Measured scan of single mutants.
Amino acid sequence: MAAGGDHGSPDSYRSPLASRYASPEMCFVFSDRYKFRTWRQLWLWLAEAEQTLGLPITDEQIQEMKSNLENIDFKMAAEEEKRLRHDVMAHVHTFGHCCPKAAGIIHLGATSCYVGDNTDLIILRNALDLLLPKLARVISRLADFAKERASLPTLGFTHFQPAQLTTVGKRCCLWIQDLCMDLQNLKRVRDDLRFRGVKGTTGTQASFLQLFEGDDHKVEQLDKMVTEKAGFKRAFIITGQTYTRKVDIEVLSVLASLGASVHKICTDIRLLANLKEMEEPFEKQQIGSSAMPYKRNPMRSERCCSLARHLMTLVMDPLQTASVQWFERTLDDSANRRICLAEAFLTADTILNTLQNISEGLVVYPKVIERRIRQELPFMATENIIMAMVKAGGSRQDCHEKIRVLSQQAASVVKQEGGDNDLIERIQVDAYFSPIHSQLDHLLDPSSFTGRASQQVQRFLEEEVYPLLKPYESVMKVKAELCL
């Protein structure tokens, strides 16, 4: 049975990233139509530049190519590739079939990587351009969430054990800070992308030097003109047959890092959902379990974690691919890159769409948070109580021993009897502590235990987050809708 299948058929496997999760716009960027249309555009740009620099290419040939950029006979191309065992030459023939007058000058002087690699770089750039505003929107939604809850005390956790208090907004800023680093890295790697350009079979530009009869300047002009037509500021000066596969490492490393950030955020949300302090959106008709109707599973956060793990592992592909590119190139890269580049971007696209949807509907339960604080705060307040007693004339050592005994009794009630923490009640009825009984409410005010959390939130948002989001103001209103 021949390899390949009808990918629109229910009898043929289709990647869930495309069929179930990723956005239509990201799927289109990695589609065959987008790819092969870009090949034709690159052939047109090459012909236009070659004509401008004096090669015998007519206006009629150029116009014929322009008129057929979208006229792609995919069936013919597939048949040609089956016959020739070469995808680029299959599309040269297919393009030439609908451009008979231009057929002889299509791909003039070029090698397969002229269309293959340059198209990949265009796709990487455009895919990054799709991700950047999506990530900015996630940051914006979380920034709104953090600002609104900047002063809401909550129990902090280290080692997932109760620690000092923080605020809900401050905790959210930990998430935002990681995503801001990801946004900066995505922008950097996007701006650092260079075009492969017009380089020939081993990167020496020998074929173009021959076409222009040894004119170095025209060869350099050709490279520059096509690079500018493709919208790049610069091209690699040095290439082998391909652009260095280190570029793929750079791009997928940034995406993998984004995956790590999203995994951490969504894990926190899942843990908070278990504590009943916070939940992701839950639709009115949504079913959490087929057997347990009360369940409210954090399905979206779980999906993000599941896909983020996949995204983090994909960076190993370009690392290994770059390491086995012998001399000017081997074909070890080809099949692998067809999979890992598309999957990385479709996965990143999915987790950003999902995280935006989550961040637009996060639900906080202040009463649950308050109750958990009441359970733990008495123990945390013991040092403040000791200091207040010393100020009232008591002995630190005597007070410490009193607190120690009462704390152990209260802990026994919590752990052995399943009761509430009654340390404060014990202190309130103990005559030894009568000098500070009137101060206990103040000493137990949760806001006095959150330090500068709310001020940190305000400063972080104003100095770091809002300036970073400013270039994306025009796209901030787009909502994230999930079908599944």
Rank of each mutant, 00 (worst) to 15 (best):
S9D: 11
S9Q: 13
Y13A: 14
P16R: 12
R20Y: 00
R20M: 00
R20V: 00
S23K: 13
S23C: 08
P24M: 13
S31L: 02
R33S: 08
W39C: 08
Q41V: 09
W43K: 00
W45T: 06
L46M: 09
A47T: 04
E48M: 09
E48W: 02
Q51T: 06
T52K: 13
G54H: 11
L55P: 02
E60N: 12
E60T: 12
N68G: 11
N71H: 13
A77D: 10
A78P: 10
L84W: 15
H86F: 00
V88Q: 05
M89P: 00
M89A: 08
H91T: 02
V92T: 13
H93N: 14
H97A: 11
C99L: 11
C99D: 00
A102E: 05
A103Y: 04
G104P: 14
I105F: 11
I106H: 01
L108H: 08
G109D: 01
G109T: 02
A110M: 04
S112C: 04
Y114V: 02
V115P: 07
G116W: 01
R125T: 07
A127R: 00
D129I: 14
D129S: 11
L132I: 14
L132Y: 14
L132G: 14
K134T: 15
L135I: 13
A136C: 14
R137Y: 05
V138D: 10
I139Q: 06
D144V: 15
A146N: 05
E148N: 10
S151R: 12
F160Y: 13
Q161R: 04
V168D: 01
V168R: 02
K170C: 03
R171W: 00
L174E: 09
I176M: 15
Q177H: 13
Q177R: 04
C180W: 04
C180E: 06
C180I: 15
M181A: 10
M181K: 09
V189E: 09
D191P: 01
R196S: 13
R196A: 13
G197V: 01
V198K: 02
V198D: 01
T202V: 08
G203C: 01
A206Y: 01
F208A: 04
D216T: 12
H217Y: 15
K218M: 11
V219D: 01
Q221L: 13
K229H: 06
A235L: 12
F236H: 13
I237S: 09
I238N: 06
T239Y: 01
T239D: 00
G240F: 06
G240A: 11
Y243I: 10
D248N: 04
L252S: 14
S253Y: 09
V254L: 12
V254R: 11
A256I: 00
S257G: 10
S257A: 08
S257Y: 08
L258C: 10
A260M: 06
I265C: 14
T267H: 10
R270G: 02
L271V: 08
L271F: 06
L272G: 09
A273V: 07
N274P: 05
K276M: 06
K276P: 01
E277D: 04
P281T: 11
P281G: 09
K284S: 11
K284M: 14
Q285R: 14
S290W: 02
A291V: 02
Y294W: 04
Y294I: 01
Y294R: 01
K295H: 01
R296G: 02
S301N: 04
R303Q: 05
R303S: 02
R303Y: 02
L307F: 15
A308V: 05
L311S: 03
M312C: 10
M312P: 03
T313M: 11
V315G: 08
D317N: 11
E328F: 01
I339P: 02
L341P: 06
L346Q: 11
A348M: 13
T350C: 12
I351T: 14
L352P: 01
T354R: 02
N357R: 05
E360W: 02
Y365A: 11
K367R: 12
K367D: 04
V368T: 10
Q375C: 06
E376W: 05
E376F: 07
L377W: 03
L377T: 00
M380A: 02
M380K: 06
M380L: 09
A381H: 06
T382P: 01
E383I: 04
I386V: 14
M387R: 03
G393Y: 07
R396I: 05
Q397W: 02
K402W: 01
V405P: 04
Q409R: 12
A411M: 07
S412I: 14
S412T: 14
Q416E: 11
G418T: 03
G419Q: 12
G419L: 11
N421G: 06
D422Y: 09
L423F: 15
L423A: 05
I424S: 13
R426H: 06
I427L: 14
I427T: 06
I427M: 13
A431R: 13
Y432Q: 08
F433V: 05
F433E: 03
F433M: 08
Q439F: 07
L440D: 04
D441S: 08
L444Y: 05
D445I: 10
S448L: 15
R452N: 11
S454Q: 12
Q455W: 07
E464S: 07
E464V: 07
Y466R: 14
Y466A: 13
P471Q: 15
V475D: 11
V475S: 14
V475W: 10
K477C: 12
K479L: 05
K479Q: 15
L482K: 06
C483A: 14
